[in-house]
Deep mutational scan, measured.
Amino acid sequence: NITNLCPFDEVFNATRFASVYAWNRKRISNCVADYSVLYNFAPFFAFKCYGVSPTKLNDLCFTNVYADSFVIRGNEVSQIAPGQTGNIADYNYKLPDDFTGCVIAWNSNKLDSKVGGNYNYLYRLFRKSNLKPFERDISTEIYQAGNKPCNGVAGFNCYFPLRSYGFRPTYGVGHQPYRVVVLSFELLHAPATVCGPKKST
């Protein structure tokens, strides 16, 4: 009989979020998941679920829940969905086509923008091939755009693969920082350890 609540607040209220190319993952297990707390949290810009209804989450049990978190621009949030393409979905964070879970995003301009620009948040701009679902690539190898080998030196046709967002408070909404948490639900042939409040007695 599990009684402790799942530590969703640790994920959602973290002081610093990860850059999207180096997205953070927390495994959540052996706890009671009260999703209504999240669902009623006012400032969400997006709360979209795939393969599961957000209002039914509290009735369900899962083997594991993974909480992935990172920061992207407002106009990139739409790429955090199954079957998407674009710089983020291709080179930074890719969801599987059969994704079961929820994508939760909110504007973090007050936290993550600075006058003069916040350059701490990076994304991958160049990559030889697209990421596989949930693949994480933190390499900083110089990207070779031409035929000539770069030998690890940036220059003509040789690019550092990461780019900084440089968030400023005055940017338009599409270019403002958004914090994103992706909850993915794993249902294995194993005992369920993460259940909603109704199922955990």
Rank of each mutant, 00 (worst) to 15 (best):
K198F: 14
R73N: 13
S53Y: 05
Y143H: 12
K56N: 12
V115I: 10
R27D: 10
G174L: 08
S78N: 15
R16E: 06
V37G: 10
N64F: 07
N157W: 10
I142L: 12
T140R: 15
P169A: 01
Y66L: 05
A154Y: 01
A67V: 12
K110Q: 11
N120Y: 14
K132A: 10
F44E: 06
T201H: 04
D97V: 14
F47L: 11
G166I: 03
F160M: 04
K48H: 08
S36D: 09
N109Q: 01
E141P: 03
F160C: 10
Y91W: 10
Y35G: 11
T140L: 11
G116W: 00
P169R: 00
F156A: 02
L5V: 06
Y39L: 02
N147L: 12
N24E: 04
V173H: 15
L60Q: 01
F45A: 01
F44A: 13
I138F: 02
N147Y: 08
N130D: 12
L125P: 09
V173T: 06
V194W: 12
Y35S: 03
N130K: 11
Y119G: 12
L111M: 10
T15A: 06
N58Q: 06
Y39G: 06
V173F: 08
A145M: 05
A145V: 12
N4T: 10
V153H: 08
P7M: 12
K114E: 00
F156Q: 03
A190C: 11
P191Q: 09
S200F: 11
A33P: 13
L122T: 02
N151E: 05
A18Q: 13
V153R: 11
K132S: 03
Y119S: 07
N120G: 12
G146C: 07
N87S: 06
A154D: 14
Y119P: 03
K110P: 06
Y66W: 09
A105W: 08
A33T: 02
F160H: 06
P197Q: 09
P197I: 14
T201K: 11
F160S: 14
F160L: 07
F41T: 01
H189N: 02
G196W: 04
L5R: 12
P7H: 06
Y143C: 04
K114D: 00
F134Y: 09
R73D: 07
I2V: 08
P191A: 14
D9P: 01
A42F: 02
N130A: 14
V115H: 00
I142Q: 08
G152Q: 12
D59A: 14
S164G: 12
F134G: 07
F47V: 04
D97L: 11
N4V: 05
V153G: 12
N1G: 06
E76H: 11
F134R: 06
E141S: 07
V65G: 06
T63I: 06
D59T: 02
L188Q: 10
P43S: 01
I138V: 01
D9H: 08
T170R: 00
K199G: 05
H175Q: 11
G152H: 15
V32W: 14
Y119N: 07
V37K: 12
N75T: 01
F156D: 02
N64Q: 06
P7V: 05
G116K: 00
V52I: 01
V115Q: 00
S113G: 04
L188G: 14
S53L: 04
P149W: 11
D9S: 07
N120Q: 03
K110R: 11
L111F: 05
V65M: 02
N87T: 14
R163C: 12
V32I: 06
I138N: 08
F41I: 12
I72C: 00
T85H: 15
V153T: 10
A14E: 01
L111T: 08
I138A: 15
P7N: 15
K48T: 02
Y178L: 03
Q144S: 10
P169Q: 00
P191T: 15
N75V: 03
F134L: 04
S164Y: 00
S200G: 14
A145C: 13
T193W: 06
Q144V: 10
A154H: 10
R27L: 06
P133S: 10
V173E: 13
G116V: 00
I142N: 07
L60Y: 15
S29H: 12
G152P: 07
N30A: 09
Y171F: 14
S200Q: 01
R163A: 12
K132F: 00
D9K: 12
T55F: 14
D90R: 10
A46R: 15
N24K: 08
P7S: 12
A154K: 12
I138Q: 11
G174M: 08
T15K: 05
A33C: 03
L57M: 08
F126R: 04
L187V: 02
I2C: 11
E141F: 03
S164N: 14
G83Q: 10
F185L: 03
K199D: 10
I88V: 01
I138R: 07
N118A: 14
S129M: 05
A33W: 03
D98P: 04
Y66T: 03
E186D: 14
Y178A: 15
T63H: 01
L5W: 04
R168W: 02
K110L: 09
R136H: 02
S129Y: 14
N58K: 06
N87G: 02
P54L: 05
L60A: 06
L187E: 05
N151L: 10
R27A: 10
G117R: 00
F45W: 11
D97P: 03
S184N: 06
A42E: 13
F41H: 15
R27Q: 13
V173L: 09
Y119T: 15
K148D: 08
L125N: 14
K110D: 06
S164Q: 07
K56I: 12
S139D: 14
V71I: 01
R27C: 04
N147E: 01
Y39D: 13
S29C: 02
E135D: 10
K26L: 09
D59Y: 08
K198N: 14
Q84G: 02
Y121H: 06
K114W: 00
T100S: 14
Y21V: 00
F47M: 13
N120L: 02
N75D: 07
V65A: 02
V173A: 11
R168K: 04
Y143W: 08
T193L: 08
T15S: 11
N24R: 08
L38V: 09
F126K: 11
S129G: 10
W106Y: 11
P197V: 05
N130G: 14
N75Y: 05
G166K: 00
G116Q: 00
K48D: 01
A42I: 10
F156Y: 15
V32E: 09
N147W: 02
S53G: 08
L188N: 08
G196T: 04
N151I: 05
T55N: 15
